[in-house]
Design a protein around this nucleic acid. Sequence first.
DNA 1: CGTCACTACTCAGCGTTACTATGTACTGGT
DNA 2: ACCAGTACATAGTAACGCTGAGTAGTGACG
Lengths: 109, 109
Amino acid sequence: MGKQMTEMLKGTLEGIVLAFLTGNPAYGYEITTWLRSQGFTEIAEGTVYALLVRIEKNGLVDVEKRPSEKGPPRKVYSLNTDGEKYLEEFWTTWGFLAERLENLRTEGK
Amino acid sequence: MGKQMTEMLKGTLEGIVLAFLTGNPAYGYEITTWLRSQGFTEIAEGTVYALLVRIEKNGLVDVEKRPSEKGPPRKVYSLNTDGEKYLEEFWTTWGFLAERLENLRTEGK
DNA sequence: CGTCACTACTCAGCGTTACTATGTACTGGT
DNA sequence: ACCAGTACATAGTAACGCTGAGTAGTGACG
């Protein structure tokens, strides 16, 4: 969707993925497919996997390796308590930002 | 407000400033002060000036130098037609993103 | 049985953006 | 003479998403 979207996704993509993961463990390919189905058609596979590596390193998710019927084994990610806490902060931050922007859009100033 | 906010501002800060500028020419120091008053207390001056240099270079704003009663001359920025077009795209992009996130927040998934 | 499509993950290098930290310079008050 | 407030500038850094390529396993089709 272009450069604006790319920049705007910084910081939010992580939250989107973590939100998807709440109560819904998933693996990389699945997440990529889901994002595409949500209209994020231009998000590269590499981006998602890099993000997953990062949130794992940051201890926000637990990982379990499971064999797949079609292809290499899957790495299934699920949100842990640290991840939940982080996601809560994410919603707070996003809520703040969204409120200001909504004001700007409607007020015209 | 922390790292999450820093990352989330990428892409949006530009839109915020451009939105503030619509029908409301302003100079750097003024914009910084306004941002602080809006709750963006941790946005550094340098960030704003760098952003202004960028949007000027990208041809989104017109600049006029005006003397100040207190301190060095001001550089007053006003949105031009390219800037308005860019801002419109910004709102489209943001609208798309905000909608998905709102869905994620309320649905829980 | 060779190729192709789909599944599934990895990684090095790049571009953009906001932050840090510092510096310059002008005005007015004590 | 000093300091706070006004006003702008900039070099270097960190973080994130993108590009583009690669590796590997499965099943279908001719």
